[in-house]
Simulated assay, not measured.
Amino acid sequence: MLATQTAVPIPDPLSRPSNAPEHCPGVESEFAGKSSACEGCANQEICASSTPKGPDPSLPLIRERMSNVKRKILVLSGKGGVGKSTFTAQLGWAFAADEDVQTGIMDVDICGPSIPTILGIANEQVHASRSGWSPVYVQDNLSAMSVGFMLPSARDAVMWRGPKKNGLIAQFLKDVDWGVLDYLVVDTPPGTSDEHLSIAQLLKDSGIDGAVVVTTPQEVALQDVRREIDFCRKVGIRVLGVVENMAGFVCPNCKGESQIFKPSTGGAKRLAEDMSLELLGSVPLDPRIGKSADYGVSFLDEYPDSPATTAYLSIIRRLKEILGDA
Protein backbone atom coordinates (compact mmCIF):
# COMPACT_ATOMS: atom_id res chain seq x y z
CA MET A 1 0.00 0.00 0.00
CA LEU A 2 1.29 3.49 -0.79
CA ALA A 3 2.30 5.44 2.31
CA THR A 4 2.01 8.95 0.92
CA GLN A 5 0.44 10.63 -2.05
CA THR A 6 3.84 11.58 -3.49
CA ALA A 7 4.91 7.95 -3.88
CA VAL A 8 3.33 6.78 -7.13
CA PRO A 9 3.75 3.49 -8.97
CA ILE A 10 5.66 3.35 -12.25
CA PRO A 11 2.95 4.14 -14.83
CA ASP A 12 2.01 1.90 -17.71
CA PRO A 13 2.94 3.94 -20.83
CA LEU A 14 -0.34 2.87 -22.44
CA SER A 15 -2.33 4.66 -19.70
CA ARG A 16 -0.56 7.98 -20.20
CA PRO A 17 -1.67 10.83 -22.45
CA SER A 18 0.66 11.29 -25.44
CA ASN A 19 1.77 14.74 -24.18
CA ALA A 20 2.18 13.68 -20.54
CA PRO A 21 5.08 14.84 -18.35
CA GLU A 22 7.88 12.38 -17.60
CA HIS A 23 6.54 11.13 -14.25
CA CYS A 24 2.85 11.07 -15.18
CA PRO A 25 1.01 8.60 -12.90
CA GLY A 26 -1.34 7.61 -15.75
CA VAL A 27 -5.04 8.28 -16.27
CA GLU A 28 -6.07 5.06 -14.48
CA SER A 29 -4.21 5.96 -11.25
CA GLU A 30 -6.01 7.35 -8.20
CA PHE A 31 -3.39 10.13 -8.30
CA ALA A 32 -4.26 11.20 -11.87
CA GLY A 33 -4.20 15.01 -11.98
CA LYS A 34 -3.30 15.18 -8.28
CA SER A 35 0.40 14.30 -7.95
CA SER A 36 3.25 16.81 -8.05
CA ALA A 37 4.16 15.56 -11.53
CA CYS A 38 0.77 16.79 -12.78
CA GLU A 39 1.39 20.44 -11.91
CA GLY A 40 1.40 22.55 -15.06
CA CYS A 41 0.23 19.69 -17.30
CA ALA A 42 -2.41 20.68 -19.87
CA ASN A 43 -4.38 17.53 -19.01
CA GLN A 44 -4.38 18.04 -15.22
CA GLU A 45 -7.99 19.16 -14.83
CA ILE A 46 -9.32 16.49 -17.21
CA CYS A 47 -7.39 13.70 -15.48
CA ALA A 48 -8.39 14.84 -12.00
CA SER A 49 -12.10 14.85 -12.86
CA SER A 50 -12.23 11.77 -15.09
CA THR A 51 -13.99 8.73 -13.63
CA PRO A 52 -14.05 5.87 -13.10
CA LYS A 53 -10.49 4.95 -12.26
CA GLY A 54 -9.24 1.42 -12.66
CA PRO A 55 -9.35 -1.10 -15.49
CA ASP A 56 -11.41 -0.32 -18.57
CA PRO A 57 -14.69 -2.27 -18.25
CA SER A 58 -14.71 -2.86 -22.03
CA LEU A 59 -11.52 -4.95 -21.94
CA PRO A 60 -13.19 -8.29 -21.01
CA LEU A 61 -15.75 -7.78 -23.80
CA ILE A 62 -13.00 -6.99 -26.30
CA ARG A 63 -11.03 -10.02 -25.16
CA GLU A 64 -14.06 -12.25 -25.73
CA ARG A 65 -14.80 -10.78 -29.20
CA MET A 66 -11.17 -10.89 -30.31
CA SER A 67 -10.78 -14.52 -29.20
CA ASN A 68 -12.29 -15.39 -32.60
CA VAL A 69 -9.63 -13.44 -34.50
CA LYS A 70 -6.49 -15.40 -35.34
CA ARG A 71 -4.20 -12.55 -36.51
CA LYS A 72 -4.34 -8.85 -35.69
CA ILE A 73 -2.09 -6.64 -37.82
CA LEU A 74 -1.68 -2.85 -37.57
CA VAL A 75 -0.70 -0.70 -40.55
CA LEU A 76 1.20 2.34 -39.27
CA SER A 77 3.35 5.14 -40.58
CA GLY A 78 3.57 8.34 -38.58
CA LYS A 79 3.44 10.29 -41.83
CA GLY A 80 0.27 11.13 -43.74
CA GLY A 81 -0.05 10.56 -47.46
CA VAL A 82 2.31 7.60 -47.74
CA GLY A 83 -0.36 5.11 -48.79
CA LYS A 84 -1.29 3.33 -45.54
CA SER A 85 -4.96 2.95 -46.42
CA THR A 86 -4.20 1.81 -49.96
CA PHE A 87 -1.75 -0.77 -48.64
CA THR A 88 -4.28 -1.90 -46.02
CA ALA A 89 -6.91 -2.43 -48.72
CA GLN A 90 -4.52 -4.36 -50.98
CA LEU A 91 -3.44 -6.49 -48.01
CA GLY A 92 -7.09 -7.25 -47.23
CA TRP A 93 -7.87 -8.15 -50.84
CA ALA A 94 -4.77 -10.34 -51.06
CA PHE A 95 -5.67 -12.29 -47.90
CA ALA A 96 -9.27 -12.68 -49.12
CA ALA A 97 -8.10 -14.02 -52.50
CA ASP A 98 -8.16 -17.38 -50.73
CA GLU A 99 -11.89 -18.16 -50.35
CA ASP A 100 -11.19 -20.09 -47.15
CA VAL A 101 -9.58 -17.09 -45.44
CA GLN A 102 -11.87 -14.70 -43.57
CA THR A 103 -10.51 -11.14 -43.45
CA GLY A 104 -11.68 -7.95 -41.74
CA ILE A 105 -10.44 -4.38 -42.10
CA MET A 106 -10.95 -1.92 -39.27
CA ASP A 107 -10.48 1.77 -40.09
CA VAL A 108 -9.48 3.74 -36.98
CA ASP A 109 -8.56 6.87 -38.92
CA ILE A 110 -11.51 8.62 -37.31
CA CYS A 111 -11.00 12.07 -38.86
CA GLY A 112 -9.99 10.85 -42.33
CA PRO A 113 -11.80 7.57 -43.07
CA SER A 114 -10.87 6.49 -46.59
CA ILE A 115 -11.25 2.71 -46.41
CA PRO A 116 -14.94 2.73 -47.49
CA THR A 117 -14.06 4.57 -50.72
CA ILE A 118 -11.00 2.45 -51.48
CA LEU A 119 -13.01 -0.75 -51.00
CA GLY A 120 -15.93 0.52 -53.10
CA ILE A 121 -18.49 0.44 -50.26
CA ALA A 122 -18.74 4.15 -49.41
CA ASN A 123 -22.54 4.24 -49.81
CA GLU A 124 -23.20 1.35 -47.44
CA GLN A 125 -24.46 1.64 -43.87
CA VAL A 126 -23.85 -0.25 -40.66
CA HIS A 127 -26.72 -2.37 -39.35
CA ALA A 128 -27.27 -3.58 -35.80
CA SER A 129 -28.47 -6.99 -34.67
CA ARG A 130 -28.62 -8.94 -31.43
CA SER A 131 -25.02 -10.00 -31.91
CA GLY A 132 -23.81 -6.39 -32.42
CA TRP A 133 -23.00 -4.11 -35.32
CA SER A 134 -22.61 -5.91 -38.63
CA PRO A 135 -19.51 -4.95 -40.62
CA VAL A 136 -19.99 -4.02 -44.27
CA TYR A 137 -19.04 -6.82 -46.65
CA VAL A 138 -16.97 -6.23 -49.77
CA GLN A 139 -17.29 -9.92 -50.63
CA ASP A 140 -18.24 -13.04 -48.70
CA ASN A 141 -14.90 -13.29 -46.90
CA LEU A 142 -13.87 -9.61 -46.70
CA SER A 143 -15.59 -7.12 -44.39
CA ALA A 144 -14.84 -3.64 -43.08
CA MET A 145 -15.84 -1.22 -40.34
CA SER A 146 -15.27 2.54 -40.44
CA VAL A 147 -16.74 5.74 -39.05
CA GLY A 148 -17.18 6.68 -42.72
CA PHE A 149 -20.28 4.44 -42.81
CA MET A 150 -21.89 6.50 -40.04
CA LEU A 151 -21.51 10.01 -41.45
CA PRO A 152 -24.47 11.77 -43.11
CA SER A 153 -22.27 12.58 -46.11
CA ALA A 154 -18.67 12.24 -47.26
CA ARG A 155 -18.24 15.99 -46.78
CA ASP A 156 -19.03 15.94 -43.05
CA ALA A 157 -16.04 16.74 -40.84
CA VAL A 158 -15.42 14.60 -37.76
CA MET A 159 -14.50 17.02 -34.96
CA TRP A 160 -14.04 14.80 -31.93
CA ARG A 161 -11.77 15.02 -28.92
CA GLY A 162 -9.75 12.05 -27.75
CA PRO A 163 -12.27 10.39 -25.39
CA LYS A 164 -14.95 10.17 -28.08
CA LYS A 165 -12.47 8.72 -30.60
CA ASN A 166 -11.29 6.19 -28.05
CA GLY A 167 -14.87 5.22 -27.24
CA LEU A 168 -15.65 4.50 -30.90
CA ILE A 169 -12.51 2.39 -31.32
CA ALA A 170 -13.55 0.36 -28.27
CA GLN A 171 -16.98 -0.13 -29.85
CA PHE A 172 -15.42 -1.32 -33.10
CA LEU A 173 -13.59 -3.99 -31.10
CA LYS A 174 -16.29 -5.11 -28.67
CA ASP A 175 -19.59 -4.38 -30.43
CA VAL A 176 -18.88 -5.34 -34.05
CA ASP A 177 -19.88 -8.88 -34.95
CA TRP A 178 -16.69 -9.73 -36.84
CA GLY A 179 -17.39 -13.46 -36.62
CA VAL A 180 -14.44 -15.84 -36.92
CA LEU A 181 -11.56 -14.08 -38.71
CA ASP A 182 -8.19 -15.29 -39.91
CA TYR A 183 -6.94 -11.70 -40.25
CA LEU A 184 -8.03 -8.36 -38.83
CA VAL A 185 -6.06 -5.55 -40.49
CA VAL A 186 -6.23 -2.18 -38.70
CA ASP A 187 -5.71 1.00 -40.73
CA THR A 188 -4.44 3.82 -38.50
CA PRO A 189 -4.13 7.60 -38.93
CA PRO A 190 -0.80 9.47 -39.09
CA GLY A 191 1.05 10.15 -35.86
CA THR A 192 1.40 8.47 -32.47
CA SER A 193 -1.55 9.92 -30.62
CA ASP A 194 -4.98 9.01 -29.23
CA GLU A 195 -5.99 6.38 -31.77
CA HIS A 196 -2.65 4.59 -31.60
CA LEU A 197 -2.54 4.53 -27.81
CA SER A 198 -6.15 3.35 -27.71
CA ILE A 199 -5.69 0.45 -30.10
CA ALA A 200 -2.50 -0.62 -28.31
CA GLN A 201 -4.18 -0.49 -24.90
CA LEU A 202 -7.47 -2.08 -25.93
CA LEU A 203 -5.78 -4.98 -27.72
CA LYS A 204 -3.04 -5.43 -25.13
CA ASP A 205 -4.66 -8.48 -23.53
CA SER A 206 -5.97 -9.90 -26.81
CA GLY A 207 -2.56 -9.69 -28.46
CA ILE A 208 -1.35 -7.81 -31.51
CA ASP A 209 0.60 -10.01 -33.93
CA GLY A 210 2.56 -7.06 -35.24
CA ALA A 211 2.69 -3.86 -37.24
CA VAL A 212 3.63 -3.07 -40.80
CA VAL A 213 5.23 0.37 -41.07
CA VAL A 214 4.69 2.17 -44.38
CA THR A 215 6.91 4.98 -45.66
CA THR A 216 7.96 6.77 -48.82
CA PRO A 217 11.65 7.20 -49.78
CA GLN A 218 12.24 10.85 -48.89
CA GLU A 219 13.74 11.97 -45.57
CA VAL A 220 10.74 14.13 -44.59
CA ALA A 221 8.65 10.92 -44.40
CA LEU A 222 11.38 8.80 -42.82
CA GLN A 223 11.66 11.19 -39.86
CA ASP A 224 8.06 10.55 -38.82
CA VAL A 225 8.38 6.83 -39.51
CA ARG A 226 11.33 6.60 -37.10
CA ARG A 227 9.06 8.07 -34.41
CA GLU A 228 6.38 5.51 -35.22
CA ILE A 229 8.86 2.67 -34.86
CA ASP A 230 9.99 4.14 -31.52
CA PHE A 231 6.32 4.24 -30.46
CA CYS A 232 5.91 0.55 -31.31
CA ARG A 233 8.95 -0.36 -29.26
CA LYS A 234 7.83 1.68 -26.27
CA VAL A 235 4.38 0.06 -26.14
CA GLY A 236 5.60 -3.44 -26.98
CA ILE A 237 4.21 -3.87 -30.50
CA ARG A 238 6.31 -6.10 -32.74
CA VAL A 239 7.29 -4.44 -36.02
CA LEU A 240 6.92 -7.07 -38.74
CA GLY A 241 8.79 -4.93 -41.25
CA VAL A 242 8.92 -1.79 -43.34
CA VAL A 243 7.20 -1.21 -46.70
CA GLU A 244 8.49 1.51 -49.03
CA ASN A 245 5.66 2.99 -51.06
CA MET A 246 5.97 5.18 -54.17
CA ALA A 247 9.51 3.90 -54.74
CA GLY A 248 9.85 5.20 -58.28
CA PHE A 249 7.27 5.78 -61.02
CA VAL A 250 6.17 3.02 -63.40
CA CYS A 251 5.05 4.08 -66.87
CA PRO A 252 1.91 2.05 -67.71
CA ASN A 253 2.93 1.91 -71.39
CA CYS A 254 6.66 1.24 -71.51
CA LYS A 255 6.92 -0.17 -67.94
CA GLY A 256 9.98 2.03 -67.38
CA GLU A 257 10.68 3.35 -63.87
CA SER A 258 11.94 6.74 -62.71
CA GLN A 259 12.41 8.24 -59.24
CA ILE A 260 9.81 10.74 -58.02
CA PHE A 261 10.75 10.90 -54.33
CA LYS A 262 14.53 10.76 -54.24
CA PRO A 263 15.89 8.68 -51.32
CA SER A 264 18.44 11.33 -50.32
CA THR A 265 19.33 9.53 -47.06
CA GLY A 266 19.10 5.97 -48.32
CA GLY A 267 15.32 5.55 -48.20
CA ALA A 268 13.55 2.71 -46.43
CA LYS A 269 16.45 0.32 -47.00
CA ARG A 270 18.80 2.46 -44.91
CA LEU A 271 16.09 3.08 -42.30
CA ALA A 272 15.47 -0.66 -41.91
CA GLU A 273 19.19 -1.35 -41.57
CA ASP A 274 19.68 1.42 -39.00
CA MET A 275 16.73 0.23 -36.90
CA SER A 276 17.43 -3.52 -37.27
CA LEU A 277 14.19 -4.19 -39.13
CA GLU A 278 13.33 -6.09 -42.27
CA LEU A 279 12.52 -4.22 -45.47
CA LEU A 280 9.54 -6.22 -46.69
CA GLY A 281 9.66 -4.63 -50.13
CA SER A 282 9.34 -1.50 -52.26
CA VAL A 283 6.20 -0.69 -54.23
CA PRO A 284 6.67 1.53 -57.31
CA LEU A 285 4.20 4.32 -58.01
CA ASP A 286 1.73 3.22 -60.67
CA PRO A 287 -0.93 5.90 -61.43
CA ARG A 288 -3.50 3.15 -61.79
CA ILE A 289 -3.24 2.47 -58.04
CA GLY A 290 -4.92 5.83 -57.39
CA LYS A 291 -7.50 5.14 -60.07
CA SER A 292 -8.34 1.78 -58.52
CA ALA A 293 -8.72 3.41 -55.10
CA ASP A 294 -11.06 6.07 -56.49
CA TYR A 295 -13.26 3.46 -58.15
CA GLY A 296 -13.13 1.03 -55.23
CA VAL A 297 -11.66 -1.96 -57.05
CA SER A 298 -8.74 -4.25 -56.28
CA PHE A 299 -5.60 -3.04 -58.03
CA LEU A 300 -4.14 -6.54 -57.71
CA ASP A 301 -7.04 -8.01 -59.68
CA GLU A 302 -7.33 -5.21 -62.22
CA TYR A 303 -3.65 -4.91 -63.12
CA PRO A 304 -1.93 -8.25 -62.40
CA ASP A 305 0.95 -7.47 -64.80
CA SER A 306 2.00 -4.22 -63.08
CA PRO A 307 5.40 -4.19 -61.30
CA ALA A 308 3.51 -2.71 -58.34
CA THR A 309 1.30 -5.81 -58.16
CA THR A 310 4.39 -8.02 -58.22
CA ALA A 311 5.83 -5.98 -55.34
CA TYR A 312 2.58 -6.10 -53.31
CA LEU A 313 2.29 -9.88 -53.68
CA SER A 314 5.94 -10.40 -52.74
CA ILE A 315 5.44 -8.31 -49.57
CA ILE A 316 2.29 -10.21 -48.65
CA ARG A 317 3.99 -13.59 -49.14
CA ARG A 318 6.82 -12.47 -46.87
CA LEU A 319 4.35 -11.28 -44.23
CA LYS A 320 2.68 -14.68 -44.20
CA GLU A 321 6.08 -16.32 -43.78
CA ILE A 322 6.93 -14.09 -40.82
CA LEU A 323 3.55 -14.84 -39.21
CA GLY A 324 3.96 -18.57 -39.84
CA ASP A 325 0.97 -18.72 -42.20
CA ALA A 326 2.79 -19.48 -45.46
Rank of each mutant, 00 (worst) to 15 (best):
L91C: 06
C111F: 07
D305V: 15
S258N: 14
E124P: 10
M275H: 14
A89G: 02
D98H: 10
P17H: 08
V214W: 00
Q223L: 13
S146Y: 07
T192R: 07
C251R: 10
R130T: 12
A247P: 00
E30I: 11
I10M: 11
P113V: 04
I237P: 00
A7D: 14
G281L: 01
V101T: 10
V242C: 03
S206G: 10
F172Q: 02
I315P: 00
V235I: 15
P152E: 07
Y183C: 04
K84R: 08
V101C: 11
V82N: 01
A97N: 10
L323C: 05
G266F: 06
N19L: 13
A308Y: 00
P57G: 04
V186N: 03
Y303I: 11
P307G: 05
S35F: 05
I229F: 04
K72H: 13
D175V: 10
V242G: 00
C251V: 13
D209L: 00
R317N: 12
P217D: 08
G256A: 14
F95K: 06
T4Y: 13
L279T: 04
I110E: 02
S85M: 06
A48Q: 14
L271P: 05
K70L: 11
R238Y: 11
D182W: 03
T117V: 15
K204E: 10
N166C: 13
T51S: 14
K320S: 07
Y295W: 08
T103V: 15
P13E: 09
D325P: 10
L280S: 02
E28V: 15
Y295G: 07
V235M: 09
P163C: 07
A7V: 15
L168V: 09
N245L: 05
